[in-house]
Amino acid sequence: MTLILGMLLDALLGEPRWLWSRIPHPAVAMGRLIGWCDRSFNTGPRRRLMGTMTLIELCILAGVIGWLLQLIPGKVVDVVILAILLAQRSLVDHVQAVGDALRLSLGDGRRSVAMIVGRDTQDMDTAAVTRSAIESAAENLSDGVIAPLFWFAVAGLPGLLIYKVTNTADSMIGYRTPRHAEFGWAAARFDDLLNLIPARLTAALIWAVASRPNPAPIMQEAPLHRSPNAGWPEAAMAHGLDIALSGPRSYEGALRDYPFVNAAGRHDLGPDDIDQTVRVLWRTWALTLVLSVLATILI
Rank of each mutant, 00 (worst) to 15 (best):
R103P: 01
D10G: 06
T277N: 12
A133S: 11
E139L: 05
P259L: 03
D100H: 10
A244N: 09
W285Y: 15
L281N: 03
D120P: 01
E139V: 06
D120E: 03
L61F: 15
L49D: 13
G159R: 06
G74H: 08
R47I: 11
R131S: 05
S112I: 02
L91H: 04
E234V: 15
I4A: 05
N195K: 07
V165M: 10
S171L: 09
V129S: 00
V293R: 02
I274V: 15
K75G: 12
A27S: 13
I299M: 13
G66R: 02
P24E: 11
P217V: 09
V145Y: 07
S227Y: 13
G118Y: 08
L255V: 14
L8H: 08
V280D: 06
V64F: 00
P24Y: 11
L33W: 00
R39F: 07
W20Q: 07
R111D: 14
A87N: 09
I197F: 11
L13V: 11
V278S: 04
Y175I: 08
E182D: 15
L141S: 03
L281C: 01
V165H: 03
P215C: 02
L149N: 06
I72D: 04
A181M: 09
I84T: 15
L241T: 02
L201Q: 01
V64T: 14
